[in-house]
Design a protein around this nucleic acid. Sequence first.
DNA 1: TACGACGTGTCGGCAACCGATATATGGGGA
DNA 2: TCCCCATATATCGGTTGCCGACACGTCGTA
Lengths: 110, 110
Amino acid sequence: MSRPLREPSYFVLAALIDGPLHGYAILKQVLELSDGRVRLSTGTLYGALERLTADGLLLPGAEEVVEGRPRRAYSLTPTGLTAVTAEAERLEAAARVVMARTSIVRVSPA
Amino acid sequence: MSRPLREPSYFVLAALIDGPLHGYAILKQVLELSDGRVRLSTGTLYGALERLTADGLLLPGAEEVVEGRPRRAYSLTPTGLTAVTAEAERLEAAARVVMARTSIVRVSPA
DNA sequence: TACGACGTGTCGGCAACCGATATATGGGGA
DNA sequence: TCCCCATATATCGGTTGCCGACACGTCGTA
């Protein structure tokens, strides 16, 4: 069992659920998935890609050149999919803890 | 708008929604709220209390001595309550992003 | 008397993020 | 032509916040 993923890493994994993407495309996908809230810096992105790969959550593809620009696509490993799913459940449980204590409308009579 | 709270800080705030608690009681409350998953070290706890106080999310009470032991209770400020609620919504939204992409049962015919 | 629960606190190390910077291609507008 | 912006990858130093270990002290109980 690993420590919780921080938001940037979590969204990197989330961006790859639908299929492999290269770094810059992940940047845009994360922005979209987070409704414009999470704007990854490239320092964060490439650091995370390297780390998540080392942890076995991502699998890097071969570098290919598209329209004169080099690209490298990353895909989720089964471990990565498991990790991001487990993390989503953790987040949801944590959210519930607070919501249950703030949004309950008291129904009991005065 | 601030950066996301990390899990330990988030649970410290969450523990105080029901009312003020002192440090050691927060430790136990967090353990309970998180279903035994989040066990804060005192280093994390007192560091977080200091920081969250400096950020205006917590208000420390006066030190009082109970049964020979000193205590200091902390309470959530309105800003703190707003922050932890907003964070809960962020967490839930993040969880949804992944759940929507992994848990959909395909209904379309083969 | 020793140990564990209670209770607060410090310190150094570390992982991850963040902003700035670097490098390079391709396309479009002034 | 020249400049800027989007595309695309990569490095680096600084900061933040967590983490484990340690320190100090009380109280109850075996």
